[in-house]
């Protein structure tokens, strides 16, 4: 495997993450790092703590204990867990991109407006954001569909709009929570092609929660969770760059 970016420090470095909900332990002393440009799959049975781990790494939830260091080139490393809610929101807008199972696109907006919104929220003027959105959609095979509203797109097309939205900004890490979970196998595979291909091409890291072994196998690395603990951390032989 050729991981050109791995000489750089890890973009995310989580140490001793603990999180419990009542008596249920969701994360139990989890250590995990994500290298720049790496595609990492998090797998495990329901309730194993996959989504909680993704939420902790992305600063959506604050763990009960432990740290998550974000190290971006040219920026001072920051422990996400110590940031205020507002600062974490800003960080998620600027440094991370998200793709969820149901896309979570704004139904009132067109495809290009949904993508442009990610830039506009970070202060890019509308006139500059829209052409960039059109370009991003074109790269994901959605040329000519820019003016369509979300209800006019198929599930796979809508998910590609969500991918374009996640990738259009300066996000260093893309978090995907079951991005193909709601799609049939053929469409899911196409969406995965789009997600992995464009993420790796742009040198971004990908952290993806999935139930699907075949989806996980296409990532560089697979981390398996059980009862809030990492039980396996292995390199994938079929990863996109294997």
């Amino acid at each position: 495997m050729n991981f050109a970016h791995h000489a750089l420090p890890n973009v995310l470095e989580a140490q001793q993450l603990r999180r419990s909900f009542g008596t249920t332990i969701a994360l139990d002393a989890v250590d995990l790092s994500v290298a720049p440009g790496e595609a990492l799959a998090i797998m495990g049975p329901s309730g194993s703590g996959k989504s909680t781990l993704l939420h902790a790494l992305a600063g959506i939830e604050t763990p009960d204990a432990g740290s998550v260091m974000l190290q971006l080139p040219g920026r001072t490393p920051v422990d996400i867990t110590t940031l205020s809610d507002t600062a974490r929101s800003a960080l998620r807008r600027e440094s991370f991109g998200f793709v969820f199972q149901d896309g979570l696109l704004i139904p009132e907006l067109t495809a290009q407006e949904n993508v442009a919104m990610a830039l506009m929220i970070n202060g890019v003027p509308r006139a500059a954001a829209l052409p960039r959105a059109v370009q991003a959609l074109g790269q994901l095979g959605l040329g000519g569909m820019e003016e369509r509203r979300i209800g006019q797109l198929s599930g796979g097309q809508a998910q590609r709009v969500a991918i374009a939205r996640a990738q259009i900004g300066s996000a260093a890490v893309i978090f995907a929570d079951e991005p193909t979970g709601a799609l049939d196998s053929v469409t899911g595979s196409e969406v995965l092609d789009a997600l992995l291909g464009s993420t790796i091409r742009q040198g971004k890291s990908l952290v993806m929660v999935t139930h699907d072994e075949s989806v996980a196998a296409r990532c560089d690395r697979i981390v398996r969770l059980r009862d809030g603990r990492i039980v396996a951390d292995e390199r994938s032989n079929q990863g996109e760059r294997a």
């Binding site: 507002t86 974490r88 998620r92 807008r93 998200f98 969820f100 149901d102 979570l104 990610a118 929220i121």
Partner: peptide, 16 residues
């Protein structure tokens, strides 16, 4: 509700 919560996860504050 689901959309608002999802957008919140992405960092789009409920203020916007």
């Amino acid at each position: 509700a689901e959309l608002y919560q999802g957008l919140g996860k992405m960092g789009l504050t409920s203020k916007t």
